[in-house]
């Protein structure tokens, strides 16, 4: 019996609205048995930056990596290795936008050995997140496990 994938709540607060703003709440799916809580500032990584362990940028403070996967970028490593590399670079969690790479979702769902949360997002949730990145809107992200209500609503 396949275990249902746990859903993630992604609460996003823009730095400029930190005191007053209500967080934007998006959703994703945990993969690799990695469900859990995490927090940090949102930071984009280009898919090609997760190819080798060159001594590139070190980040200070907690951060959560977001990577928009694209089928046109040749896969330099399996996605599990990319996820682990992002976590080794210090990410508290990794969000993969799989809107344009549906194979990625299938590939990542097979894993079960990730030390920290890895979440897949697509469609509207991904568009909202990448929209922030595109406008360089610095934001803090909190990731939690979505608790499904016990009794499904029957209309």
């Amino acid at each position: 019996l396949e275990r249902p994938a746990l859903r993630a709540l992604i609460k996003v607060t823009l730095f400029k609205h930190e005191l007053t703003g209500k967080p934007m709440v998006l959703e994703g799916v945990f993969v690799g048995g990695s469900a859990g809580k995490a927090e940090g500032k949102l930071l984009q990584y280009h898919p090609l930056s997760l190819c080798n362990t060159s001594e590139d940028e070190r980040q200070d403070g907690d951060f959560i990596t977001i990577v928009k996967l694209e089928r046109r970028v040749p896969r330099c490593l399996p996605l599990l290795d990319k996820a682990n590399m992002a976590l080794e670079k210090g990410a508290q969690a990794v969000i993969f936008d799989v809107s344009d790479d549906d194979q990625a979702a299938a590939e990542l769902r097979e894993t079960d050995s990730l030390p920290r949360p890895v979440i897949l997002v697509d469609a509207q949730d991904a568009e909202e997140l990448m929209g922030l990145v595109n406008k360089n809107e610095e934001a803090n992200v909190i990731i939690e496990i979505k608790v499904e209500s016990k009794w499904p609503q029957y209309d």
Binding site: H46, L48, K68, R72
Partner: peptide, 23 residues
């Protein structure tokens, strides 16, 4: 739009540039 260049023409180098939260 989100990742910028994904591949370069021959002889060009791919550089991953960090601009704030973007790369």
């Amino acid at each position: 739009d989100y990742n910028g260049c994904l591949s370069c023409k021959p002889r060009f180098f791919m550089h991953l540039e960090r601009i704030g939260m973007k790369q």
